[in-house]
Design a protein around this nucleic acid. Structure first.
Lengths: 223, 223
DNA sequence: ACCTGAACACCGTTCAAGT
DNA sequence: ACCTGAACACCGTTCAAGT
């Protein structure tokens, strides 16, 4: 996350303005994403925050898409992957994915990136590798493992993103809730009957349930 | 929902230019989304296609977000939900989700909407209700059913969206593939070993596998 | 009631020009 | 080599003004 080595440099000639760098751009972008949400992630806003023009950023970064991938990975740096020595493979797997979820909750903009950006970068890869290791320990390997990771990573991202959409005030949540309230019970009887279960985010319990479902399914399929 | 009464009007005075309407706007928007992809879904482009200014659209539609929800639902109108009389609940469930997937494949822009837009509207609701019915037939109900639908709907959308990202040429696919090729086998040994399975889209087989996993998981969890 | 022009406040990206 | 100003080609949304 932090690079404390940098602070030692401190040339006297420049008062506060650090020189531009890829690292600094990514960090600034992530801060903007945290403070302003998805719309904060714009070349122009990042440039302004760094006190330059937008064109200056293109020296360090190819385009916004690439920058977004870096920001995603940088954000994932906060994850805590549990010590392998401590618990069962399953506990560790769940804890890792929970840590992933927490990062996505904390900075909802990252959840959107996780869903729409292809995760390259060391932290994404480390998480994937970690999950593959746990699945391997649990006896799940090869194709099952490869396809399973996808499912296991997708779920937290979508849960976090849905939450984020729900918390936006201007968003279509109102439309959704309104629509569920108005639900024509004769046309959609089951949906109408389950509307409370569907609308409620469900919290930790629901998330855990989903992971269990996926994992049980994977285990079941290969026997 | 739909106002079919309108078609009867047909005044001779206007040669080809239909009068503006919510329906027409949604249809035009969907065509643009099909032909130009996600960037085609813009108020200005829709307006231009309808030979007006963007401000005219706001008479019929609150904003782009709301319009997107309508476009999503309109696109889902092409789904074919299998006749309940014919097959087992499981076959019907899989066929319905496959039909959903096909619509999303055909118009990749819709996949992105499915992932980022809260699905209100008759066709979305009909699909949800249909799935709940099949699950009910299969003995899955209440909370399991409510939470399960979420998982079952999420999966096709993400599969289609991933595919769409993969097929974009300018996209980070290159970066992904390159990154997977360059994968440091000593740092991420399992990932490196599975890179072919992970990169390949896998097609129908993989999709079916994923649905089975989710369904098996749900069935397993409630016993 | 419906439509429009023009404006406001934004975007990403490029490129010639400066230091 | 690095940075910048200015421009290009776009956005969504609003609103006074017209018919």
């Amino acid at each position: 996350m932090d690079k404390p080595t940098r602070t030692i440099i401190s040339r006297r000639s420049r008062p506060a303005k650090e020189p531009l760098s890829k690292e600094l751009i990514i960090k600034t972008a992530l801060e903007l994403l945290k403070s302003e949400g998805p719309s904060g992630l714009s070349m122009r806003k990042i440039a302004k925050a760094l006190d330059t023009g937008p064109s200056s950023l293109y020296v360090y970064v190819t385009n916004l898409q690439e920058l977004s991938a870096y920001v995603l990975d940088h954000g994932l740096g906060k994850m805590a992957l549990p010590d392998v020595q401590e618990g069962s493979w399953k506990t560790n797997l769940f804890d890792a994915l929970n840590s992933y979820l927490m990062v996505l909750y904390e900075t909802p903009g990252i959840a959107e990136l996780a869903l729409t950006t292809i995760p390259v970068g060391p932290h994404s890869l480390a998480l994937t590798e970690y999950i593959l290791e746990r699945l391997h320990e649990g006896g799940i390997r090869s194709t099952s493992a490869a396809w399973g990771v996808d499912l296991l990573l997708l779920y937290p991202a979508s849960v976090a993103f849905e939450q984020a959409s729900r918390n936006q005030k201007g968003s279509p949540l109102h439309a959704l809730t309104a629509s569920y309230q108005t639900l024509d019970a004769s046309r959609y009887p089951l949906l109408a009957g389950l509307k409370d279960e569907m609308t409620s985010s469900g919290g930790k319990e629901r998330f855990h349930w989903g992971l269990e479902v996926i994992l049980q399914g994977i285990l079941n399929k290969q026997d």
